[in-house]
Structures are given as structure tokens and as C-alpha cells.
Design a protein around this nucleic acid. Sequence first.
DNA 1: TATGAATGAGTATTCATTCAT
DNA 2: CATGAATGAATACTCATTCAT
Lengths: 205, 205, 205, 205
Amino acid sequence: MTSKPDSPDQKPSFIEAVRRAQITECAIECIAEIGYVNASLAKIAKRADISTGVISYHFASKDDLIRAVIAHVMDTAVAYIQPRIDWSNPRAALRSGIEAVVAYYAAHRDYSLALLKINLAGGAGTPTEPYDPEIQERRQRVMREILAQGQEDGSFRPFDIGVMVAAIFGAFDTVPRKVAADPPVDLPAYGRELAELFDRATRAD
Amino acid sequence: MTSKPDSPDQKPSFIEAVRRAQITECAIECIAEIGYVNASLAKIAKRADISTGVISYHFASKDDLIRAVIAHVMDTAVAYIQPRIDWSNPRAALRSGIEAVVAYYAAHRDYSLALLKINLAGGAGTPTEPYDPEIQERRQRVMREILAQGQEDGSFRPFDIGVMVAAIFGAFDTVPRKVAADPPVDLPAYGRELAELFDRATRAD
Amino acid sequence: MTSKPDSPDQKPSFIEAVRRAQITECAIECIAEIGYVNASLAKIAKRADISTGVISYHFASKDDLIRAVIAHVMDTAVAYIQPRIDWSNPRAALRSGIEAVVAYYAAHRDYSLALLKINLAGGAGTPTEPYDPEIQERRQRVMREILAQGQEDGSFRPFDIGVMVAAIFGAFDTVPRKVAADPPVDLPAYGRELAELFDRATRAD
Amino acid sequence: MTSKPDSPDQKPSFIEAVRRAQITECAIECIAEIGYVNASLAKIAKRADISTGVISYHFASKDDLIRAVIAHVMDTAVAYIQPRIDWSNPRAALRSGIEAVVAYYAAHRDYSLALLKINLAGGAGTPTEPYDPEIQERRQRVMREILAQGQEDGSFRPFDIGVMVAAIFGAFDTVPRKVAADPPVDLPAYGRELAELFDRATRAD
DNA sequence: TATGAATGAGTATTCATTCAT
DNA sequence: CATGAATGAATACTCATTCAT
């Protein structure tokens, strides 16, 4: 749905895939480092040591590239986080989920930083919406499920799920800035702190 | 370091102040509406119904203007929030503080939205820092004090203050997006939910 | 209807008018010389010895500039041709009209050449339509009137007016290529030949 | 001077000829449909469902391809029109010639449209000449002969042959735009009108 | 032969900034 | 003080062409 071959889905051709991956990676680094605004195709190309035309050759537009970036980040995030969630009960799921996200952010600082910056750059035109609202939805879906389950089985108190999810992801968005902070932050501890924080914020009684 | 180059720091001159205020205000509206990226000096000037040269005359650079925007937003925020904090005890201070911030965001949607967008656009060059780290510091100072007091007098449990502050402000940053959400969000309720959330997250026992 | 000031119609400001005229003139020369396709803003700017930004400053877009070119050519053409038409009777009107058009083309070779090239460059998207069908309409209106009058009063035979007008303007479009031909063409004679041609083609009997 | 650089002018090789024909055909369609300007090699290649490199392999340059297009159109035109000319006398030849050309245009709308658009796009550099003056010469040769014969045997009045030929072809160039006009034009009638027009314009007395 | 990947110049347009008036 | 005009660099994107495979 992203790329250029209009003859629907032939074969992405090995080198094509490699190039796209390389460009996507460089774009992520660029955005993380200098911001979404300043990450021009020229700068991304220079970082990849290719000509700008190459990017246009492999991606239909800058928007197409950005969507590839988002997709890549989301995919790796899901792959990393999903198996780390302990589904034995909602409280455990929440704690492990939060810690997994922080761990992922710690492991892929550029990825999460890039995603954050893209999401807040402004997007289509509507002032309040992030780059792609559907992306936000996908990000939050699992967390929403955990909270709903916990309220159902009585392990969580009756709070507004939308507010809680927003707060949790608001907290997540602070992580990238901490990753390379000086002095360095103990990220596993950061994750545990957040887990404790939201466990207390959500649990019954 | 800010404005007029020639006369070192003589008289801010009435008209000077008025113009700066007018331009600052228009810049805020512009940034909130069309995003930091798209808020060019030309567009800001058009909104203020002045020529672009006027902006350059009163502000040394676009960066200078943005700093003025930040300063203005911060000042009004402090003026709004400060007197709304109930200092009778730390827990009351935290709750009232959180609700005051949300109320401020609700009342000055453009201000907070602009600030948020500026902070995430990429900034000076350092990868992890927002547009101006000192600004962030100022924003968080009061909240930090409240938490410290509460831990001292035993009304708060022993958590990492840095993490808690980050989480609280992460939650704050979600508010602007909710302000103009469709369907509209009940913002006082949103503030109360957040207050309850962080009260539970912080209180002793 | 053409230009940039959105505050509807203040004052075109002397220098503004001068610049627009200069740029329009250079655009005409460029298009006439190297073709509509190759007449990039950069080349037009170079010919005017200004930076490309100046063009963008005075014209909202390239399309806007082209429309200004068309309008300018049309205006001068009407001003030149209109008073040269002898309205004493349809046959005289047709002959004088044709000769006036050829004379205009001879006098303003670049203008007519530019118009011709613009009209055939392809325009909006529809394959058969010229750049702006309405322009074509305006060009042909007077000639259409003359022919209709002549058919009414019996001085012209009953032919299809649309075909005749097309043929006449088809003949006009050949003039620019003759203007600078080598060996040079006797243009007044060319005009007289065409007048004779279409007089015979149209007259009764 | 045209294609393959290495083997001077050995064997055009069957597949070579086929490919060239295919590409030429697609180029014509492209130019007719989206205009000479927009008909990039990439788009032509896409239409032919081949890679862009193939075009560059079979044609030395885009210019070379365009010349092939012109040649192909000219060849088919001659093949179509030539046998339809009634040579019994000059007036019959003129009428039948004109109707044959219009008929050809009607039958091969894309061909004539493409030729027209190429000729007016700007060409080599000389301002007044169409893409290839020699082509124009070839187009007009037969018509020129007919007119000369008619003047010799007294069936045509003494007019300037150059002017008359120009007018006739000027009229021809209006046909492609009529072909796909909305509402549709009755083209045989159009041809008959033009024939009548130029018969009256040329005949003696 | 044919391909798809790559290049580098070129496209229109926007931008922050400067400066004479 | 303010303006409008001008600049030159930067923007995303397209193009004809080349070349290793």
C-alpha cells in the first residue's frame, strides 16, 4: 500500500528492498536528530550518501517515505513489545507492557524519537490531529484492551480509559528525551517507576 | 541578545512593545493553527496585516520571535496557574495544580498548542532536547517543589520525582489535542481524572 | 483578477506595475524564442536580469504569469485591430479585419508567436483544448459577428460560420512563422492575399 | 544519424524494427493525450509496459524518438492521402486532396494531434521554424504541385501559392481540435466546407 | 537485448532576511 | 518606524540519460 510499483504487487526485487530499508533507516536517524521539519530529502540522501533522485525513485513522495518510516517503527515495536507482555492477569499485563515499551524505547531511541517528532509536526492540516490518527489508534489498542479487561474482572478501579491511555502514552513520549540524557538515566528503573505509577493509578481500592 | 541591535538596551518604547505583543500573538495563532513548520514569517505578517519587514525589524530573527512566543506563553501560564494552587497541603496542591494546568490549556488552547508544536519541531540541534531546555525547567519547577514537599512531610510515597514530573507533564501535553477533539472532551472532567490518577500514583500507602 | 494582492484592489503601486510589465515582456520574448515548454522561470528571470524569486514575488504562480501574458497580448491586439476595421459593410469589415490582424502580427511578432505557442502547448489536460478556451472565444468573437452580419444582409454566401472562422484563424496562426522568414515575406502583401482569399471564399454568388 | 551507434548501418534486425514501431506508437498516443511537454520517456515507457532503458536503447535520444514519430506519421499520411486524390483536373485534385486530409485527420486523430503538438512545442531553437522545417516542406509539396498545375492550365486564378498553401495547412491544423470536440463535429461535412472554401478561393473568375 | 537502478541537472515555489525609500 | 521589493538558498519532485547486470 505504500510503495511505487503500480502493477500491484509483483516482486519487490531484492535490491529495491535493501535500498528502501537503507533510506528508511537514514530518514529515521535524520528525523530523530534534526527534527521532522529539517529532515529534508537532500539531508537524508546525504546521510545515505546517495543522490536525492534515488529517494524519489524508490518512494513516490516524501509522504510515502514518512509512511514507510512509521510502518517500520510500528512493526519493530510490535515485534519487540508483544511477546514481552505477561498476560497472566491485567495488572501484570499493564506493568509488563509499560516496561516493555520503555525497554523498546531504550533499545531503539531513534525509532521512537522519530515517531514522536513525526506525530507532532502537524500533519495534514487539522491542528490537533497527529500525522496519522490511525497510527495513534494502533499504538494504543493493546493498552486499551488491557485496561478494559482489568475493569471487567475488577482488578482495576473504574476510571476513564481514554484519559488513562492518553496519560500512559504521554509518559511514554517522555522516554526518548531521557534515553541520551546527561547525566544518563537508568532506563529499566524508569520503566519500573512508570509501571509502579500506573499500577497504583489503576488498581482497585 | 534579543531585539534591537543599535541602541543597546535603552527604552523599550511604547509602540515597540505593542508591536512585539501583536506579532507574538499572531505568531501563536499561526503556529497553533497551521503548525510550526508552516508558520512562515510571511503568513504571520499577513495575519497581523503588516509587511514581513516589520517582523524582522522588531525581532532579530525568527528564532528570536519564537523565544518571545515561548516567554509570553510561559508568563501567562504562570499568571493563570499560580494563584489557583491550593497550598494547604501537598496533595491538595498537586490536585489543584493539575486541574489548574488543564484549565489553562482549555482556556488558552492556542497558547499550549503552539508551545507543544514548537517544542517538538526539532529545535536548536541537540537531538533529545526540546526547543529550549531551560523553558522546560521553568515549566516543571513548581510541580517539582510540590512533590518534594509531599515526600518530606510524608503525604507522598517515595517515588522518583523526575519520573513523576515527566509523567505528569507528558499527560499535560496530551491535553491540547483533546481541546478541539471531535467529539468534544469534557475538560474539567479530564482534569479531575488526571488529578485522581496522579493522586493515587503519588500518595503514601 | 490576475494578480496577487488579496486585499482586493488597493493600488498596484507604480513599481509593481513596472516590474510586472517587464517580466511579462521578457516572458513573451522567451516563449516566442525558445517555446513555451523551455521558457522556465529561471530563463525568463535571467533574461530580465533578476532573480527567479522576483517573478514569484510579483506573480502568484507560473500560470498566473502566463495568464498575464495572454491578457497583455490580447489587450494590445484588440487596441491595434479594433480601430482598423472598416465597418461600412461586411465585406469591407472582413477584408480590413484580416489585414489588420496580419499587420498586428507583423508589428508584434513575438506577441503573436508567444500566444500561438502557449495555446498549443497542451494546457490543462484535455487533449484538444487550447490553454484557455475562453481566450480563443474572445479572439474569434468579432470575426464571428462580421460573418453573421454578412450572411444576414446577403453579402456572404451561406457557409458554416464555425468552419470559416476556424480557417481564418488557422491562416492567422501561420503569420508569425512568416514574419522572420528567410527570405523575408512581404507582409502587407500577405495580408492582402489572405483578404482576397477569404473575400472570395465568403462572398455571395 | 538516427539510432544505433556501434554497428554503422548493418541490419535493422526484426525485433529492433518491432520495438521501434511499438515505442513510436506509444509515444504518439502519449503526446496526443497529455501533450508533448508532459510526454516524458518514463510515461511513454509505462504505456508500452517496458522499462525506460529500452527507449534509450533503441533511440539515440528523445529527439531521435520524436523524429521517428514525425516520420511515421508522415508516412502513414502520405499512404492514406495520396491514392485518394482525384487527378482528373486541378480543381478536383484540390477538393479531393483537402477532403482526404481531413478524412485522414479524422481517422488518425492521435497522429495528427501529436504532429501538431510537436510542431508547436518550440523545437530546435530557431524561433520561427517548427520542429523540423523539412517535414513541413514534405507535407506541403503535393498541395503546392496541384496549385501550380491549376494556375498553369488556367483553372486557378493567379494567387500567391505560398500564401494559399499556408492558409490551407493552417486550416488543416484546426482539424485535430475538432475531432474530439464536444459536441462532436461532422467531419466529412467539415472537409466539404473546407473544400468548397478553398475551391472558391482559388478558382479562376 | 532488456532491465531497473542511479545520476545530476532542472522544475516551480517558498522562505528568512536585507535594504533603500 | 514601516514598507514593499528583492535576494539567494532551500524545498520536493521530474527528467533524459547512463550503465552494470
